[in-house]
Nucleic acid binder design. Structure first.
Length: 877
RNA sequence: GGGCGGCUAGCUCAGCUGGUUAGAGCACCUCGUUUACACCGAGGGGGUCGGGGGUUCGAAUCCCUCGCCGCCCA
């Protein structure tokens, strides 16, 4: 006998081990494959609710397709996550005695990171297992694995030789905290309160001054021009003159350029080509000198005159003070403006002129755009394709070099004269140089560079492996919209370039779990929720079911703990249904054919099962995860438990042995079906019940995880049974409703009479009398005229009546009937209004018109019956 | 400034290829310990579907417009 509730804590680890040991996680069997690569979580990470959602959905798909008999590969792994990981270890060093990575040196530092990875890197993978993820762990990869590193070097070298990777000196987003370049995508534009400081620059010829406005006063140290709009009447006469830059004393020109916005600030703008993307362009157009005034730490360098060596923000303050003291500060204006911040460091990013490695993304983007236009890769929901196109069609060169130590070191070697040799190995580079002494480029690659290769590098590329042949392209990628640019688009570019095919046929974009303020959750912000606590409290199935049910396409999820509790209760409900079936000896019967069932309730539940199975299958095929979950919930709770098992009880307690045997077999069969259909979403409780229910009856062939997905004949639905049970449910519900509203004690058993019953109704009443008596708590149910002093209700063409003389509460009964009559009156008004409209009758489809006629007739009949009863009551009172 | 999404019951959401009395879960109210389950059962209250206009016989659903809220990109 089953316990009263499922104990997830005890069962989950045991079941997971059994699955893994069974080999079910590795692809096997069929020619038809289904493959997915996991979005590799950061190796530093621990499972947050976003991972839980993403991996639950992947696992639902993996288990579903596995049960459908496909060879499923769900390839797991982790990402070395350059900045994030380096940050964690640097923080650790700082805590352990204020050592910086530079104190330690590159080699020792990298060794420390590996050490850390060995110790703590397995956390997230263990957590994925707790969730039930059925990944093929035998194929687990890490982006810094030797094999993946080979792939990275090969890709880099090939792209370089094709001219698609190149070195360039231009402004980059420089993160002064990590002292590295970052890509545009890693920059977060934050709107902040700031100021426009209006400075007066004196004309060199002494004829006056020009006032410029700036939000970053310290950059004036690097000014090489002042720009005004060519049509700006205020300044036209000054174009071509020069000003003397305060503090620096440098003579710089006043130039005309459209970039100067007459509406903004004073209309005249200082130009600092080395420290502003727009100014850089202006500088190019006018051949202005580019003066770099900052170092890698964001401190003013020797080009900054008196401020050399001081921090950028300290300098800002001092320069403003000096301007005020010296009288060239004209005014201060408050403003809100957008300031770039590093998404990891959170510090203000500086545009900085450096040499970096770039990928020619615009070229690689073209096939990636085409592949989605052609439908070779489809986004689900389709709408995200717009986002994808928007970005790829306006793509900028991708800066891939990072001045970090943790990552793939760039396979480029330099000779003493500054010539570069890009090869996969040092020896090849030396050979290419003609035997010179070379030193390797110090930089590492952007983490996303190796992630971009993930769909094929994990399958063994550049080797021509069996896995690549069988599983590339993958079938579906499940990921969040926040990394469509970072990851999805770049995988498309690299996959098409190196594999000559898309990396995945379908991209399912899952919702993003946000925090209470609507902000994206991230480790660096520290606003993550802990799914493992929820698993501890409610079990993995409850969390999984919740996330699946809430995963409406492309929306945000605001998780309420109450919801998880509710779905835990759902599991308990199922558990107790199994317990009930066990108590009533509903043992599975070998060779039982539901198609041959004779009892109406069994033919009915069979049809319900067919519909539920079809809907769950459709939903999972379409990634409509919430539909699948809701269908399961309703079928299991509201159909199977609320009605089928209740209808089965009188059979079990009756003496029709044939009916009893058939119903027991059907109960067990349906329960098995439920376990299969629910397994992808709630694998633990279903596997546990699968095992427990095998204690009696025929032996199981194996674990539920490897069971075949149900494929039921559509012909198993039975409209006659549906109509009959539908009537039965309506009758029972009506009786219960009357009883409750009339405050009839639950223990009181009443006789029911049905008048004006047609042949079908009479037959049903006879056939199901037993059920009706039990479920509606009646003494008898017979055909006949309503006795005096009874409460009427409408059931189809018939009128039911419960004699309530002993309990009658006239006021309650009048209220009940009045409400019913009012509802019917409203409906009659609505429907007859429609039918009175000649346009409606003429233009609406015939079946809609007919439907309304029937509805009207039924409502009128029902109303007149109830009104008569109401009049009788009013006559009495 | 451009793009995307949202605004439906107290809360979280579904419904949006036009025709149902607009649904679910939670919360709330009443009753109930009937031998699967109180992590339960039965019954009930609660919404002019953000505002306005339009198309249509008919609009939560299609179109326009306005208003908030959120996100992404400049």
């Amino acid at each position: 006998m089953l316990e009263k509730t499922f104990d997830p804590a005890a069962a989950e680890p045991r079941l997971y081990k059994a699955w893994e040991a069974s080999g079910a996680f590795s692809p096997s069997g069929a020619d038809k494959t289904f493959s997915m690569v996991i979005p590799p979580p950061n190796v530093t990470g621990s499972l947050h609710i976003g991972h839980a959602l993403n991996n639950t959905l992947q696992d639902v798909l993996a288990r579903f397709h596995r049960m459908k008999g496909e060879a499923v590969l769900w390839l797991p792994g982790t990402d070395h996550a350059g900045i994030a990981t380096q940050m964690v270890v640097e923080r650790q060093l700082a805590a352990a005695g204020n050592i910086s990575r530079r104190d330690l040196g590159r080699e020792d530092f990298v060794a420390r990171v590996w050490e850390w990875k060995a110790q703590s890197g397995g956390t997230i993978v263990r957590q994925l297992r707790r969730l039930g993820s059925s990944c093929d762990w035998s194929r687990e990869r890490f982006t810094l694995d030797e094999g993946l590193s080979v792939a990275v070097r090969k890709v880099f070298v090939q792209l370089y030789k094709e001219g698609l990777i190149y070195r360039d000196k231009r402004l980059v987003n420089w993160d002064p905290h990590f002292q590295t370049a970052i890509s545009d995508l890693e920059v977060e534009q934050r709107e902040v309160d700031g100021h426009y400081w209006h400075f007066a620059y004196p004309l060199t010829d002494g004829s006056g001054e020009i006032v410029i406005a700036t939000t970053r006063p310290e950059t004036m140290l690097g000014d090489t021009a002042v720009a005004v709009h060519p049509d700006d009447e205020r300044y036209k006469h000054l174009i071509g003159k020069t000003v003397t830059l305060p503090i620096m004393g440098r003579e710089i020109p006043i130039i005309a350029d459209d970039y100067a916005d007459p509406e903004k600030g004073s209309g005249a703008v200082k130009i600092t080509p080395a420290h502003d993307f727009n100014d850089f362009q202006v500088g190019k157009r006018h051949n202005l000198p580019v003066i770099n005034i900052m170092d890698a730490f964001g401190k003013i360098n020797e080009e900054g005159g008196p401020y050399a060596g001081s921090d950028r923000f300290a300098s800002r303050k001092q320069i403003v003070e000096r301007a005020e003291n010296e009288g060239w500060l004209r005014s201060i204006e408050k403003t809100r403006h957008v300031v770039p911040h590093g998404d990891r460091s959170g510090v203000v990013v500086e545009p900085w002129l450096t040499d970096q490695w770039y990928v020619d993304a615009a070229t690689l983007a073209q096939p990636a755009i085409k592949a989605v236009e052609d439908g070779r890769t489809v986004f689900e929901p389709r709408n995200w394709e717009k986002t994808y196109f928007e970005w790829l069609r306006n793509i900028e060169p991708w800066c891939i070099s990072r001045q970090l130590w943790w990552g793939h070191r760039i396979p480029a070697w330099w000779d003493e004269d500054g010539n570069v040799y890009v090869e996969e190995t040092q020896s090849a580079a030396v050979a290419a140089s003609g035997g010179k002494a070379l030193t390797q480029d110090e930089d590492v690659l952007d983490t996303w560079f190796s992630s971009a290769l993930w769909p094929f590098s994990t399958m063994g590329w550049p080797e021509e492996t069996e896995d690549l042949k069988r599983f590339y392209p993958s079938h579906t990628l499940v990921t969040g919209f926040d990394i469509i640019f970072f990851w999805v688009a770049r995988m498309m570019m690299m996959g098409l370039h190196f594999m000559d095919d898309v990396p995945f046929r379908r991209v399912f974009i899952n919702a993003l779990v946000r925090d209470a303020t609507g902000a994206k959750m991230s480790k660096s912000k520290g606003n993550v929720m802990d799914p493992l606590e929820l698993v501890d409290r409610y079990g993995a199935d409850a969390l999984r079911f919740t996330l699946t049910a809430m995963s409406g396409q492309g929306r945000d999820i605001k998780l309420q703990e109450q919801r998880i509790e509710g779905y835990r209760n759902f599991g308990t409900k199922l558990w107790n249904a199994a317990r009930f079936s066990q108590m009533n000896h509903c043992t599975r019967v070998d060779g039982f054919d539901p198609g041959a069932a004779r009892e109406t309730i069994n033919r009915w539940i069979r049809g319900e099962a067919v519909r539920a199975a079809a809907e769950v299958t459709r939903a999972l095929d379409a990634c409509a995860f919430d539909d699948a979950a809701n269908t399961l919930y309703r079928f299991i709770w509201n159909v199977y438990c609320d009605w089928y098992l209740e209808l089965a009880k009188p059979v079990f307690n009756g003496d029709d042995e044939a009916a009893k045997a058939e119903t027991r077999a059907m109960t067990a069969w349906t329960l098995d079906l439920i376990l299969k259909l629910l397994h992808p979403v709630s694998p633990f409780i279903t596997e546990e019940l699968w095992e427990k229910l095998a204690e009696t009856g025929p032996t199981r062939k194996g674990l539920l995880i490897s069971e075949a997905w149900p494929d039921l004949p559509a012909g198993w639905t039975d409209p006659a049974a549906d109509a009959e049970i539908g009537w039965l449910i309506a009758l029972v519900t009506e009786v219960r409703s009357v009883r409750a509203e009339m405050n009839i004690p639950p223990a009181a058993k009443l006789p029911l009479t049905l008048s004006n019953a047609g042949d079908d109704t009479r037959a049903r009443l006879t056939r199901h009398r037993n059920l009706i008596l039990t479920l509606a708590r009646l003494e008898s149910a017979t055909e006949g005229e309503a006795p005096a002093g009874s409460a009427p209700f409408v059931i189809g063409e018939a009128t039911g009546a419960l004699p309530i003389a002993g309990y009658i509460d006239l006021a309650a009964e009048r209220a009940r009937l009045s409400k019913e009559v009012a509802n019917l009156t409203a409906e009659i008004a609505r429907t007859s209004g429609k039918l009175a409209n000649p346009d409606f009758v003429a233009r609406a489809p015939e079946e809609v018109v007919e439907e309304n006629r029937e509805k009207l007739a039924e409502a009128e009949a029902a109303k007149s019956r109830l009104e008569a009863a109401l009049k009788r009551i009013e006559a009495v009172s």
